[in-house]
Design a binder for these strands. Structure first.
Length: 506
RNA sequence: GGCCCCAUGGUGUAACCGGCUAACACGCAGCCCUCUCAAGGCUGAGAGCGCGGGUUCGAGUCCCGCUGGGGCUACCA
């Protein structure tokens, strides 16, 4: 499979750096470990991964843990697990390393420090001693006067002596970027087209927090430059961060990467997907019994479509071959659980019984009584019976539990029906006679047996079948009766039917 | 409030640089198949492309305005 090189030059705007061209594609997914992998994040990761694989580039994973308060190590693992579950692999990142590590921002302080010193030296940063209270008051005042809410630059002009004095006095401070005035900040977004802002709309953004840690916007830029990121693919909620970051690229004298802001994933009310819309983290879908490949396939189609959009079931390699950013849509997409579920069922139907059994094992193991004496071939057969009935793996728990523990109660509606046909118990006992004598307990012969039995009895075939089904499973709906009987085997079938005959309507 | 993004059936999308009775899938309804449940097959309802103006022989596709939805407005990422 050959993929084209990323189409190169874009018309370059008046300001800003020049994008690297025709160098190998390098993209990254940069989650912060403050929670589990969210479906929005998962799709961003997926698009980056697909983009990298399509162009035979490099996919980097970087952990953005500069928020000491909220970051937790356990979440880093959770996110990695989520990505692995989806089948994504990264070429550089935590646990695999790479030439541009470390891949945890908390371990890259020397990088930030070097950049800070340079910028400080060049007079591009300044110390700001404003406290949270001061800033809050300032914003409140601005809100009342209905003017733009942004930092008014009151610490911009502090002279060196005062700065040193206040630092010596132990005042805490942040470092802010001196924002240029009346400059265009523009870029050609791959998915949104040309986007432009002016520097006056921007703030003197904080680059270093009072705890000494770099802020998100600063760390991202330093790292993306260091890691030679060529394409920044992220959610469109980052659009407004982009001009700030571009200012940083300029201050650092670095070329701009390409930017591609992909639309958000929304809940039914068209607001960004959140917990109140239902499951939002990828592990929850795993627990609900979704297959990772189906989930990934569904996610890929959320905001993107292949050239031939009539094909929706796409393998990993087909996604690699097909995925390009120009086919990403520009508006948000509602996460549709029904369609995901449909797609999951499509995947299940495509598995061989043996494969499906392997996927089902963790769930089957939770069923009381499992394996209930069923041997491997019977289990494979059982998986085959549910291949076209399961929508999610966890459904096996409630659909097939009776295979492993004989029923003790029988569906009320089923009993009513059994009563209605009259003489059910006698019928069952006569059938039992025949079954005991059946030479072969296999699907075809069993069906032939029951058919001729029904005929001999002057009964409707269906009535006999329903009666047996109820006796074997306690239910009115199961896979085909004779397939079920073959899976259960003669002994279990006879035992269950005998037991049922004892309580069955006469 | 300010700035920015977006707008094709209920949902996800398609419709190449303007030329169709607006297509595919999910979901929904009905029918068929059938031992039940599924699966499968067939048929159907559902948008005239948010609204209003332009441009054009011709606009879902281009332009303007409006409306609606969303995002951002932190020493969070």
């Amino acid at each position: 499979m050959r993929y084209p090189a990323f189409p190169a030059a874009r018309p370059q705007g008046s300001q800003g750096g020049t994008p690297r061209m025709s160098t190998p594609v390098r993209v990254r997914f940069a989650p912060s470990p403050t929670g589990h992998l969210h479906v929005g994040g998962a799709r961003t990761a997926l698009f980056n991964w697909l983009f990298a694989r399509h162009y035979r580039g490099v996919f980097v994973l970087r952990i953005e843990d500069t928020d000491l308060e909220r970051s937790q190590e356990a979440y880093t693992k959770a996110i990695l697990d989520g990505l692995r579950w989806l089948g994504l692999d990264w070429d550089e990142g935590p646990d695999v390393g790479g030439p541009h590590g470390p891949y945890f921002q908390s371990q890259r302080e020397d990088r930030y420090r070097a950049a800070i010193e340079r910028l400080l030296h060049e007079g591009k940063l300044y110390h700001c001693f404003c406290t949270a209270e001061t800033l809050e008051a300032m914003r409140k005042d601005q809100a009342e006067r209905k003017v733009d809410i942004k930092y008014d630059g009151r610490c911009r002009a502090l002279d060196r002596a005062e700065v040193e004095r206040r630092i010596a006095a132990g005042e805490t401070f942040v470092l802010r970027l001196r924002r240029p005035e009346r400059e265009w900040v523009e870029w050609d977004d791959i998915t949104k087209g040309r986007l432009s802002f002016t520097s006056d709309q921007l703030d003197d953004l904080v680059v270093v927090k009072s705890d000494g840690m770099p802020t998100y916007n600063f760390a991202v830029v330093v790292d993306d430059i260091d890691m030679r990121i060529t394409h920044v693919i992220r959610g469109e909620d980052h659009i407004s961060n982009t001009p700030k970051q571009i200012l940083l690229y300029r201050a650092l004298g670095a070329p701009l990467p390409w930017f591609a802001h992909i639309p958000m994933i929304l809940g039914k009310d068209r607001a960004r997907l959140s917990k109140r819309h239902g499951a939002t983290s990828v592990v929850e879908y795993e627990k609900m019994g979704y297959d990772p490949e189906a989930f990934r396939n569904y996610l890929a189609l959320l905001g993107w479509a292949p050239t031939d959009h009539t094909r929706e079931i796409l393998s990993r390699d087909e996604l690699f071959a097909e995925f390009t950013l120009d086919r990403v849509s520009s508006h948000g997409a509602i996460f549709d659980l029904d369609k995901l579920t449909w797609m999951n069922a499509e995947y299940i139907k495509r598995f061989s019984p043996a494969t499906l059994l392997a996927k089902l094992r963790p769930w089957l193991a939770q069923i009381p009584g499992f394996p209930g004496g069923l041997d491997e071939p019977a289990l494979v057969k059982l998986a085959g019976l549910y291949r076209e009935r399961l929508k999610t793996y966890n459904e096996i728990l409630t659909m097939a539990d009776w295979f492993f523990t004989a029923p003790t109660t029988y569906d009320a509606k089923g009993l009513e029906k059994a009563a209605k046909i009259g003489g059910a118990r006698g019928l069952l006992n006569r059938l039992l006679e025949r079954l005991r004598a059946a030479p072969e307990f296999a699907e075809g012969p069993l069906e032939a047996l029951v058919r001729s039995f029904a005929e001999a009895e002057g009964r409707k075939f269906g009535d006999v079948v329903h009666l047996c089904r109820l006796g074997l499973s306690g239910r009115t709906a199961t896979p085909g009766l004779f397939e079920v009987m073959a899976v259960l085997g003669r002994d279990r079938c006879l035992a269950r039917l005998e037991r049922f005959a004892a309580v069955c309507p006469t």
